[in-house]
């Protein structure tokens, strides 16, 4: 059976206006990501990886080119369909966690299920289960500011999994975490990737991600520099670190 592309981009371009000067952040990205893959989009800051991430997630509109999610051109969706897609097909994780500050961990995880029309009781049970899965069974009723960064990111992961999405998009999920917590989050993501067969796409410059990624997409100046499978990766790590330092 041929591998099924869960995300496909064709000639993706994005131009921002800086005052009156157009800035080409993405200069034509063609990409295929398959179901169940763990993908890292790597590149220095300013390379356009967050922009690419936003396009893939339907969080921003490309200037040119197409994004297909599960073979559906998302530019053709109306507001209701787009909300449905964000609610059910994609789970989002952010560098800054972005939990709703006035809600408890449990309520944060319940929110996407409520938006999806699930009954309260059912949503609450599922949210509890998910929070236990990410190791926060004892912190259900804590507000985000009562949790550490790592714990907040775990809540965000549970929330991203709420409606059993096909894709989890994580933008710098370890960017605000210390080394050890970052590792834990990466392993948690990998575990979810294996157990729930969800595709994970992370935009990152955290080299710890390399270990768990099936493929790494290197972005530089808004173009794909190269795409590497994991088997070919190990040798290059040293070279990469050199690049990052420079």
């Amino acid at each position: 059976m041929p591998r099924e592309a869960i995300v496909r981009t064709i000639g993706l371009k994005k131009t921002f206006l800086l005052g009156k000067i157009p800035l080409n952040v993405l200069k034509g990205i063609d990409l295929e990501i398959y179901r169940g893959e763990y993908i890292s989009i790597m590149g220095p800051s300013g390379s356009g990886k967050t922009t690419l991430f936003n396009m893939i997630g339907g969080l921003d509109k490309p200037t040119e080119g197409k994004v297909y999610i599960d073979e559906v051109d998302i530019a053709q969706l109306d507001a209701y369909e787009l909300a449905w897609l964000r609610c059910r097909k994609i789970g989002y994780i952010f560098q800054t966690f972005n939990l709703i500050p006035v809600m408890t961990a449990l309520e944060n995880v319940m929110l996407p299920m409520i938006f999806g029309g699930m009954e309260m009781d059912e949503a609450m049970n599922k949210a509890k289960e998910l929070l236990e899965t990410v190791g926060l069974g004892a912190r259900l009723h804590h507000k985000p500011f009562e949790l550490s960064g790592g714990q907040q990111q775990r809540v965000a992961i549970a929330r991203a999994l709420a409606n059993d999405p096909a894709i989890i998009l994580a933008d710098e999920p370890t960017g605000n975490l210390d080394l050890k917590t970052g590792k834990e989050i990466i392993h948690l993501l990998k575990e979810m990737n294996r157990n729930k067969e969800v595709s994970i796409i992370t935009a990152t410059h955290d080299l710890k991600m390399l270990d768990v990624s099936d493929r790494v997409i290197w972005i530089r100046d808004g173009m794909i520099e190269r795409i590497e499978d994991r088997e070919n990766l190990q040798i290059k790590v040293g070279e990469v670190e050199g690049e990052e330092a420079g």
Partner: peptide, 29 residues
């Protein structure tokens, strides 16, 4: 491969939540 026709049927429409949800959420906020 680039010209594959998208099937729209895989996508559903998001439900409109009853006003009571918004009301509860605002009160709590």
């Amino acid at each position: 491969m680039a010209t594959r026709v998208p099937e729209k049927k895989k996508i559903g429409k998001q439900l409109t939540l009853p006003l009571s949800h918004a009301f509860n959420m605002s009160m709590r906020s």
